[in-house]
């Protein structure tokens, strides 16, 4: 890994950010994830939360129990040996999607907009692995990279008031899944029976930053079957390992 210059900037008296770069790239994001993994090993007292994003790691702390300068010292020391660090292989989470129909009312529009057949949109959407750069916006929402530009479609001009949880959509060059019922302007191409966020299960969230998502098409029967399994807790989400984690270190 190349030597990266990290910038430490306070964000008030209860958080600071560590900036790994100024662009959205898998390389910069990998540094953020390495920082997170490294700091977590350390179990630093007074730290209350980490918020990894595309190019930054925010560290939240309790200003009563820890001093910023002390904390900074510990973090800088930990970050010094980052170059030698390799992350375990990234996980691929397989996400079943019922494309089109009532569940994906905008599939037709996305196809038409890009001069494709609906089947092409499904094939293209389910053939790339999308990196979870970060989670945010609402509980369990993933900011994904890696969608094929051939199916990019602008947002709807008038957002829908109610989009069901699990809806899979496209906004510009991004694809994403709605973790909770909410209003929104994404073009909806399908629905997954998986729950991205369940406060009553452990772990509560389906995805971690650094995971890859691989969508695959299912039919109505499979949808019902999986939905029933998700509801009674018997469905096992399929997870595999990605061979190349973007680190350049093939394992």
């Amino acid at each position: 890994m190349k030597e990266v210059t990290l910038k430490y900037i306070p964000s008030g008296d209860s958080a600071f950010i560590i900036k790994a770069g100024d662009v959205i790239s898998e390389e910069v994001n990998l540094v953020v994830r390495k920082l997170l993994a490294r700091f977590e090993e350390e179990n630093i007292p007074g730290v209350t939360d980490f918020i990894p994003s595309y190019n930054e790691l925010m560290v939240c702390y309790d200003p009563v129990t820890v001093d910023y300068r002390q904390l900074l010292g510990i973090f800088k020391k930990c970050a010094a040996d980052l170059g030698a660090m390799t992350l375990p292989d990234a996980g691929v989470v397989h996400v079943p999607v019922l494309y089109g129909g009532e569940e994906g009312p905008d599939l037709h529009y996305v196809a038409e907009y890009n001069g494709l057949a609906e089947e092409d949109v499904i094939r293209i959407h389910s053939s790339a692995d999308c990196l979870v750069y970060m989670l945010g916006f609402t509980p369990g929402f993933c900011y994904l990279g890696g969608m094929d530009k051939r199916i990019a479609t602008p947002r709807q001009e008038t957002p829908r008031l109610k989009i069901p949880a699990g809806s899979v959509g496209i906004a510009g060059e991004q694809t994403g899944i709605y973790p909770m019922e909410s209003p929104g302007g994404w073009q909806l191409i399908g629905l997954t029976p998986l729950r991205l966020f369940n406060p009553d299960s452990k772990p509560e969230f389906l995805f971690n930053a650094g995971d890859y998502i691989r969508f695959y098409p299912i039919d109505k029967d499979e949808f019902e079957q999986i939905a029933a399994g998700v509801a009674d807790g018997t469905y096992q989400v399929r997870r595999t390992q990605k061979i190349d984690n973007g680190d350049g270190n093939r394992t």
Partner: peptide, 10 residues
């Protein structure tokens, strides 16, 4: 900015 963390009182 590129979407990034927000802390209390930002």
């Amino acid at each position: 900015i590129i979407s990034a963390g927000i802390s209390l009182g930002t």
